[in-house]
Design a protein around this nucleic acid. Sequence first.
DNA 1: AATGGTATTAACCGATTCGGTCAATACCAT
DNA 2: ATGGTATTGACCGAATCGGTTAATACCATT
Lengths: 201, 201
Amino acid sequence: MNEKFYQLPEEKQLRILNAGFRVFSKSTYRKSPMNEIAAEAGISKSLLFFYFRNKKELYLFLMKRAEELTMEYLSKSGCYAESDIFEMMYKGLLAKTEMMRKYPDMSLFALKSYYEEDEEVKDELQKIIAPYRKLSTNKSLPKLDPTLFKDGLDLNMMYQDMFLASEGYMYQMQNQGRIDVDRVLMDYRKLIDFWKDLYLK
Amino acid sequence: MNEKFYQLPEEKQLRILNAGFRVFSKSTYRKSPMNEIAAEAGISKSLLFFYFRNKKELYLFLMKRAEELTMEYLSKSGCYAESDIFEMMYKGLLAKTEMMRKYPDMSLFALKSYYEEDEEVKDELQKIIAPYRKLSTNKSLPKLDPTLFKDGLDLNMMYQDMFLASEGYMYQMQNQGRIDVDRVLMDYRKLIDFWKDLYLK
DNA sequence: AATGGTATTAACCGATTCGGTCAATACCAT
DNA sequence: ATGGTATTGACCGAATCGGTTAATACCATT
């Protein structure tokens, strides 16, 4: 990767990044042409090849960037430090919506890459993903103080309910072409408050 | 579409159908090659062109078939006739999992087609989709008898919670490469029962 | 206005892939 | 053997692909 890329104005870097995310997220690696990415970014194919030696390099760069940014947004959101599980979930989804605002196709790109099997990138891709694979442990119940919740409540089911609904939110956001992110976020806040009222003593 | 297609043994029809769903669901229309579909179905490209005049015809045929099958499965499940909202949701998701068992990539194919913008198929595609577009009204709350539910419960929020969690389930099933459908279904049943206990008087 | 360095592109290349055709072959019952 | 049917390999012209390169646009300094 050419160092000159980092000297570009941030807005142009962003355009190239998002163009890559966009095109790669719509197809497999092999069927995502460089000229399409260039056009989407509003630059010539030659210039794209000036910044990135070849397609493979660009693809792996995007994957690394996606991982970095995800970690960055999640930790910055403070959702890990939050002890209140409801606020933790809210902050988590808040971070994801902020990401989608700036990088609309990044999470879909990352998801697709997760299952990419093209020989040209498969091995090196797995090396990039491996360290983060163990981290996606959101599905399991975090430690909770049972005395805070209504008596007889199955905390495991409660968490699964909330986790799945949050996934459902992300799913909806991904599939709606252009959606009012703030509106969705407000709805989710309402849902969180609904849960607090429902589950807490 | 060549009538001979229907005279094929059902298993072979299924292979061709699923191959189409699979390949088209992984990329855009233009980037889904016929030879790939043929290979996936285990037949030659020539034979595929014998049954379907060209790519466009196959694609639109698949879309029609997906609509038909979805309607068929949903009505057969009895979820429309169900008055108990919890059982209605269960039957709805049950129908979808049954579909995924037989046509693993169909729903993803239908979702992608929904947003397909290729000029070659866009117009005719919209004609096929249009009648069903109004039907996807699952998001809005059906009529409910408030006396059945716990006092003070916000029925709208309750429904949204359940709807989103169900979407989350489908999302998970779609992204897991090969998943134990029966296991997922059992989990969902548990969730439904959890909700009944939580929401009903 | 000339200079020189940098950012950017158009034009091009050989290889591959594409949708689609067609003559040939495999298969199978009579 | 025969004849019909199911199926395929080989082929075609056009388009697309990743990648290169020589040329141009841009812009600050003299």
